[in-house]
Amino acid sequence: MILLEITSWLFITTGALLGIAGGIGIHRFPDFYSRLHAVGVTDTLCAALFLVGLALQTGFSLASLKLLLIFIFLFFSSPTATHALADAALMGGLKPLLDEDNGGNDLDRHSD
């Protein structure tokens, strides 16, 4: 029983840390598209970890089935919303920040 508590506690803390990482990422990244990446990644994974952690707490019951449903829906809808957002932003004329903009003085000049 204790093992179950510890694993669910582990899931929830990693989910919380990932959430905060996403929150920090949304402030530190220079450009909308990199911010979109930061939020899209951590959002989905943080939700997944939280829901699995909560499902461990509620054991085999209707509640964990509902949590699984939320997870499945978020698993499909969050990337779709992020994609629609990126598409709308690109259509709306928001240019991504490329390394040529700031003089292209990046170290790994792979884009010749």
């Binding site: 949304i26 911010r35 932003a89 709306g92």
Partner: peptide, 9 residues
């Protein structure tokens, strides 16, 4: 679009 992204989050 930043705002929409933040509200989505």
């Amino acid at each position: 679009y930043d705002r929409i992204l933040a509200i989505n989050m």
